[in-house]
């Protein structure tokens, strides 16, 4: 590993400087004549440089929460604060990787153009832009596919392109919305390791939303378990597994099994409608 390819600035990692602060977040969807409370009261913080996973039963408002954090959706009450600034629209230091990679990448552009476009929009100078695109595609193992169109690649490769696009953007916060839900199990394991290694290399803060319990325990430093809708935080589970993780040994650790069972039980509780006192 040579020099940090994206040159993400080093940030002080103290408990007081929260990268992301979600306070009393509530989201009610107002429909015709009826309103649905998707998220009731969510409060948590993510420190700079952390990798935090959010799991919850299906329909727990995970995507709603992520869209509120991304500034793509207005909140009904409470606030989202990113790097000390209140989020009212998509903030500058953030990139989102969507689950639907096939629709998030633009089919009329090549892989390189897809990765480069947000940088152009950000007015990154040409030389630096070139290097960022090259480095990020190399980091996801797709340096040879630059001139292909996304639809000429497999699903896993397309999601790698979307990750490269996010990484090249040099975000401080990387939001991932069930990014591997649509790829096969083997590709999924590879992509999980890719996220871990990019996170360790770049020092970026990652908030990873998933419905997969194993995935959340394997990836995260913390796992925030959500209740069913209207959503509150059920438990914030610290994951005290070694920092160096790999698919075979980490997943066969007794501690992994314990944490997995614990999160599993929480999800079962959440499904049965249990709420914290």
């Amino acid at each position: 590993m040579t020099a940090d390819p994206t040159g993400a600035p080093a940030r002080p990692r103290s408990a007081t400087t929260a990268m992301l602060d979600v306070r009393g977040l509530q989201k009610i969807y107002e429909g015709r004549g009826r309103s649905v409370e998707a998220v009731r009261d969510l409060t948590f913080t993510v420190a700079a440089g952390e990798l935090v996973c959010i799991v919850g039963p299906s329909g727990a408002g995970k995507t709603t929460l992520l869209r509120c954090i991304a500034g793509l959706l207005d909140t009904t009450a409470g606030e989202v604060v990113l790097e000390g600034e209140r989020v009212t629209g998509p903030p500058p230091g953030m990139a989102v990787v969507f689950q639907e990679y096939g629709r998030s990448l633009f089919p009329w552009m090549t892989v390189r153009q897809n990765v480069e476009l947000p940088l152009k929009e950000k007015k990154v100078p040409k030389d630096r832009r070139r290097r960022l695109v090259q480095d990020s595609l190399e980091a996801v193992g797709l340096a040879d596919a630059q001139d292909a169109h996304p639809w000429q690649l497999s699903g896993g490769m397309q999601q790698r392109v979307a990750i490269a696009r996010a990484v090249a953007y040099e975000p401080h916060l990387l939001l991932m919305d069930e990014p591997f839900a649509a790829v096969d199990a083997q590709t999924r394991a590879d992509l999980e390791d890719l996220v871990r290694s990019l996170w360790q290399r770049l020092g970026v803060t990652v908030l990873f939303v998933t419905h997969d319990i194993d995935e959340s325990v394997y990836l995260g430093q913390r796992v925030i378990v959500l209740s069913n809708s209207p959503t509150v935080v059920l438990e914030d589970v610290p994951i005290d597994l070694p920092a160096e993780r790999d698919q075979l040994t980490t997943r066969s650790l007794p501690r992994f099994a314990e944490l997995r069972s614990h999160v599993y039980e929480l999800i079962q509780l959440a499904k049965s409608g249990h709420r914290p006192a």
Binding site: G71, L72, S104
Partner: peptide, 14 residues
């Protein structure tokens, strides 16, 4: 596509 639109918005396209 709504996802393409949100992608553009999240990357702050003018």
């Amino acid at each position: 596509d709504p996802v393409a639109r949100e992608t553009a918005r999240s990357y702050r396209f003018r």
